Computed example of a mutant assay.
Amino acid sequence: MSTPRSGWFRSRRFAVAAGLTAALAALVATLLTMPLNASLASADGSQITGLAGKCVDVAEANNANGTPVQLYDCNGTPAQQWTIGTDGTIRALGKCLDVVDFGTGDGSAVQLWDCAGSANQQWVVSSANDIVNPAANKCLDVRDNNTANSTRLQIWTCAGTANQKWTAPAAGGGGNGGTGGGNGGGTPSGFVVSEDQFNQMFPGRNPFYTYSGLTTALAAYPGFATTGSDTVKRQEAAAFLANVSHETGGLVHVVEQNTANYPSYCDTSQSYGCPAGNDKYYGRGVVQLSWNFNYKAAGDALGIDLLHNPDLVQNDASIAWATGLWYWNSQSGPGTMTPHDAMVNSAGFGQTIRSINGALECDGHNPAQVQNRVDSYQHFAQILGVDPGANVAC
């Protein structure tokens, strides 16, 4: 394996979309401090209840395409009988809960529509009672916190608020308990990669990089490795871990090895400066997070003050993993899409390389580095028993 570079972020700055910072911070805080009513069991295994104890309801029990989905007094009618499928759909009256016009923005309404297996009909029920549309990375939400009957439901940036909390039947309909991410992976964590498979992938890893640290970090991004078919879920997990392996020399390096570079990553043009010290923003963690502006962006998104406490990335395994998931799910780097989108939309593993380090590796710039990533991906896909798919190189 080639000597890892000092990180994905060494010479690139990434903007975090307005509003994402506070919302994801709230989501992470909620996931880490679950409310007392966090059980996903519903009274009859079919109603989905939320704000003010009211139910998710199909307006007028009409199963026509485009019928609004709303909040309404629970009444036990078929308009309130929902099945959470193992395929990621939520169904009532023979049709699917659907985001209108494939919307991904805050305020996009939900409706009933013919089931098509499309991204706007995919949902993940998290262990913290969020119902998330991974394509938009947004939560099912009661508009304006309004408890009145017939209040329209929508998707909104996940904030951990009461109007985004739901009790729901388990996947497959009926029974108690949530899906823990809904991926059907069969492991205690719900992740498609078991601990034994993880250990097989990283036989010489640094003990700092724990499997439990990874599975804890997954809560911040419930759409990761839970979106699409079982094949897609496993391909995404293999792709993420292969890129992580390349960046860290097989999960060996926790911090950047060239200490002479440490004072180089303070961008003094930023208004917030480098409060932890000019030499404290060197590469750390599974993506070797570097530069003060990247510590701030990742920390803001995760609800952790990494700008003032950058050492957390090398001292807390779950935070080290979470910074990698932050990049994977929300940043496109020199590419045209996030690595998450590349995998769930079948663009191929090669596009994840482009989004991570395409300017330096793709299009013939460094074929040996590209091949190293591809080799790891194909090996990990084999461990997970999944075909790596097409377009594996860039």
Rank of each mutant, 00 (worst) to 15 (best):
A298M: 04
Q270D: 02
N261Y: 08
D300H: 02
N345A: 12
V344K: 06
E361T: 11
S376E: 14
A301I: 00
L384I: 01
V313I: 13
Q270G: 00
Q331C: 08
C362G: 07
G277S: 08
A342K: 05
N357Y: 10
V370W: 03
A381W: 03
N372T: 03
D316L: 13
I356E: 00
G389D: 02
T259C: 10
S264C: 11
G358P: 14
Y265H: 08
P367A: 15
G348M: 13
D311Y: 00
L325T: 07
H365C: 11
S290C: 09
N329Q: 14
V374P: 00
A390E: 13
A301D: 02
T323I: 15
T352H: 02
D375R: 10
W321N: 03
M343Y: 05
D375T: 08
G389C: 09
W328T: 02
L289F: 04
G277I: 11
D300R: 03
G348F: 08
P388F: 03
D316G: 01
F349C: 02
L325E: 06
V287H: 03
A320Y: 02
I319H: 03
L384Q: 01
G335M: 10
V386S: 03
G335A: 09
Q382S: 15
Y377H: 04
L307K: 12
A368E: 14
Y377I: 06
Y327E: 02
N345K: 09
D311F: 00
G364Q: 05
N292Y: 04
G277R: 04
S271Y: 10
D387P: 00
G277Q: 06
T352F: 11
L325A: 09
D375H: 10
A368D: 13
A317M: 13
S318Y: 05
V392K: 05
C266M: 15
D363P: 00
C266D: 02
T338W: 05
V313Q: 13
Q314C: 05
A276R: 03
S376M: 15
I319M: 09
L360Y: 08
E361G: 03
G324Y: 01
G283I: 14
T338Y: 14
A276V: 10
A276K: 10
T259L: 15
L306I: 05
V344N: 01
G285Y: 03
N261R: 12
L302S: 04
H308L: 07
G335S: 07
P275I: 14
I319E: 07
F293V: 13
Y265C: 08
S346H: 13
I383H: 04
L360V: 11
Y272D: 14
S332G: 08
I356H: 01
G299C: 12
G358M: 09
G324H: 06
Y265A: 06
S271D: 12
V344I: 15
R354Q: 06
A322M: 09
N315R: 07
W291S: 06
G285C: 06
V344E: 10
N315F: 09
Y281A: 11
S269G: 11
Q351A: 12
V286M: 02
A298W: 02
T338Q: 05
D387I: 00
D300G: 15
A322E: 07
Y327V: 06
D387K: 03
P339T: 04
D387C: 00
G389R: 05
S271T: 14
N309S: 14
S330H: 11
Y295F: 15
